[in-house]
Write a protein that binds this DNA or RNA. Structure first.
Length: 402
DNA sequence: CTCATTTGACCCTA
DNA sequence: TAGGGTCAAATGAG
């Protein structure tokens, strides 16, 4: 759980963001603790309906404690969790957010703004804020993969932000790219491109960090009640896209195994630190037969092609935005979901990912769905599918890695 | 005018 | 201190 949990510590570039958590009132802490406990209870419920092929995601004592607590129904639990989350996030909104997007933007803008030639002259004391204790270099997103491809087009939109001649290969300067959606969605994915030494017509691309962004044009606005994951994805849970985006021309289409899909590195380095990081303290245990996939298919996992079997399943769609300036209300749409066979989709955006003046709603929501608040980042940040809650021998587990 | 790229400087890590 | 990653002003393209 990197330093950037609830309050948002620093973005990928090392510029600091306001630490809302530092000023979080007791009320907020209580809310989050409550959420954590209820999430655990929910986990227990999910466990009860199955015989997990994998070890318990939490200590048995704890699990049994909650199991014996005769917890309320799953839907009530979810509602309660979301309510508490909304409350907590709202608190964050009004405390840590302080001046809302303004404060965040202020921090971002007051970062070193040097004039060429006059740089760092006044690095002492009263000058413009020097890069503080945060790191700026490769402490960021974890390495994902390196591929060799003949094209730079991997289906994602990248923005070049630098190029350097590297000692190892002076003839092949290294180009630095970051995700185009970094400013608006806080996506931390980056890549480095060099032409191949062996074959100059090819590129060696190293990817760092997972895409947490979504192309607004491809984002499903809301999970339709009559849609469902594909049959083989009954237990599917997916978050954030990864490199390649499925349509990439590269030689890789990453199907991430469960461990990878919930890699703490991934979780903490991405937007999960915003919501799940708050909840924290949970490990995950994922059924072996379930499908986990990152990339563009997550879209399908949450809103994908209709399936007759699942068309009967009600859906609860929950959106929550922890935005600085945006509404933090939690909207629950279609909460008619029963415990069995229901699905829930959660969207949330941690405050640290909000762009300057985050109140603007450039998102795709608001086109009549209403399931997500009008916040810039909720479109891209997290959609997860709690597929097939509860019964029917489901061994779904939905855990959170700290 | 807006946005992406270029490029030199800054600064962190080893 | 060298190497490498990132920033941001300058510049160019659409």
């Amino acid at each position: 759980m990197a330093s950037s949990s609830a309050g948002g510590a620093a973005d990928g570039d090392g510029r600091s963001s306001p630490r809302a958590a530092a000023a979080a009132p007791r009320e907020l802490v209580d809310d989050l603790i409550d959420v954590r406990e209820r999430a655990t209870m929910l986990q227990t419920i999910l466990l009860q309906g199955s015989s997990p092929p994998t070890p318990m995601p939490m200590p048995m004592s704890e699990a049994s404690r909650y199991a014996s607590a005769a917890p309320e129904g799953t839907s009530e639990l979810i509602d309660r969790i979301m309510s508490r989350l909304a409350s907590a996030l709202s608190t964050l909104d009004t405390t840590g957010g302080g001046g809302g997007g303004g404060q965040l933007g202020q921090v971002q803008q007051q970062g070193r703004r040097r004039k060429k030639g006059a740089a760092a002259v006044d690095g002492s004391g009263s000058g413009p804020q020097r890069r503080s204790n945060t790191t700026r270099r490769r402490s960021h997103s974890p390495f994902v993969e390196t591929i060799t491809t003949s094209t730079l087009d991997d289906g994602k939109s990248w923005r070049k932000y630098g190029q350097k001649i590297i000692q190892d290969s002076p003839n092949n300067p290294r180009s630095y790219y970051r995700c185009t959606h970094k400013p608006d969605q806080g996506c931390r994915a980056t890549r480095q491109v060099q032409t191949s030494d062996a074959n100059p017509s090819e590129f060696v691309i190293s990817y760092y960090g997972q895409h947490t962004c979504r192309d607004p044009s491809t984002i499903p606005l809301v999970i339709q009640e009559d849609t469902t994951p594909p049959p083989d994805c009954a237990n599917l849970i997916s978050f954030g896209s990864t490199v390649g985006g499925g349509s990439a021309s590269s030689t890789h289409t990453a199907v991430v195994p469960p461990q990878a899909a919930f890699d703490p590195m991934t979780m903490t380095s991405s937007s999960f630190s915003g919501l799940f990081g708050i909840i924290g303290g949970y490990s995950c245990s994922l059924p072996a037969q379930a499908s986990y996939r990152c990339g563009s298919e997550e879209v399908h996992s949450s809103s994908g092609s209709p399936s007759p079997a699942a068309a009967q399943q009600p859906a609860a769609v929950v959106g929550s935005a922890a935005g600085v300036a945006g509404s933090s209300a939690t909207a629950v749409v279609g909460s008619s979901a029963g415990v069995a066979g229901s699905s829930a989709t959660v969207g949330s955006a941690p405050a640290e990912y909000w762009p300057r003046g985050g109140a603007s709603s450039d998102m795709a929501c608001g086109r009549g769905t209403g399931s997500f608040p009008s916040s810039p980042s909720s479109l891209g940040f997290m959609t997860g599918s709690f597929g097939s809650f509860g019964d029917a021998g489901d061994d779904d587990l939905f855990g959170f890695d700290p």
